[in-house]
Amino acid sequence: MKIIILFAVIGGLLFSCNDTSTKKEDNTFDIVTTTSMITDLVKNIGGDKVVVHGLMGAGVDPHLYKASEGDVSKLSNADMILYNGLHLEGKLVDVFERMKKQNINAIAISDALDKKDLISSTLFESNYDPHIWFNIGYWELMTLFVADKLSNALPESAAYFQDNAQKYLQQLKELNVELRNEIATLSQDQRRLVTAHDAFNYFGKAFGFDVVGLQGLSTATEAGVQDVQETAAYIIEHKVKSVFIESSVPRRTIEALKAAVNSKEHEVSIGGTLYSDALGDPNTEEGTYIGMFRYNVKTIVKALK
């Protein structure tokens, strides 16, 4: 019933917003983004030519996020909506699909990628792992995709967007080299990453880690006793030194895992908190995509050595 009411509210607002008689007077180009990673990306490319409104802040789980009344207002007044797609924003999927049918400019940045390059899953609704930002090469493709979408929407600023995109791409390339050098200090057998949920498969594939998530791809699924026991057995078999909490996932499941391992006379520590589905606090290094990635890798390497 709530989603039906949300549709009705959004539908009414969008209809009025698309009426040329209600055109905004401030001439700003307003973009609504979902995750904090996308918000950071659009700010890097859009600069001062756009106004970015992020729905999800630090520590917010996009799998479980529900639109508030304030979100409805932002969505209804947006000139463009950029979201991840692949069912990451589980509670908002139907809203975005409805908007597209009403010719609202709602764009999934995952459309920048070829489906054959995605990690498939029979256990997740979209059949693809949605955590695509953990492959820096894919993030580069999404950077170009967003720059093109902004250039098409605001052709008078196209050169500005493309220039910003190229500067950002250079930063991403430098980050990739830096992180590979950092990870190279780990032996292949040390590259075993155990986290709260399956958010790091693209990271593992890109950087040569064996990745195990206690929960599935979506945090909407709870880890059961069998999940804990199987993961504990993996940790003991491979002598994994540390496991990791995630900033957007309750820590209790990892603490239960640690207790299960330690009860079998194998010591495992909590190696730190990683940023998975959200960036860190605004105005911190971890509040940017590049800073988040750098922090994650340093935390992982330090704990697994």
Rank of each mutant, 00 (worst) to 15 (best):
F203R: 02
A196R: 05
Q215V: 12
R191Q: 08
D210M: 00
A233T: 15
A199L: 11
F203I: 10
Y234S: 12
E222V: 10
A199K: 12
R192Y: 08
Q188K: 12
T231R: 12
L193T: 00
T185V: 11
V225N: 14
V243E: 03
V211G: 01
S247Y: 14
A220F: 04
Q188V: 07
I183M: 02
L217M: 13
E182S: 13
A199I: 12
A199T: 09
Y234C: 13
L193H: 00
V228T: 09
A220N: 14
A223Q: 08
V194Y: 04
I235D: 01
D227V: 01
S247C: 12
Y234G: 12
Y234Q: 13
D227F: 05
S218W: 06
V240A: 04
A184P: 00
Q215K: 14
T219P: 11
V212S: 08
E182V: 05
A184K: 09
F200N: 01
L193P: 00
E182R: 11
A220Y: 07
V225C: 14
I183C: 04
A206S: 10
L214Y: 13
I245G: 03
V240H: 08
Q190G: 00
V212F: 03
T195N: 04
L186V: 03
S242W: 09
G224F: 11
Q190K: 05
T185L: 07
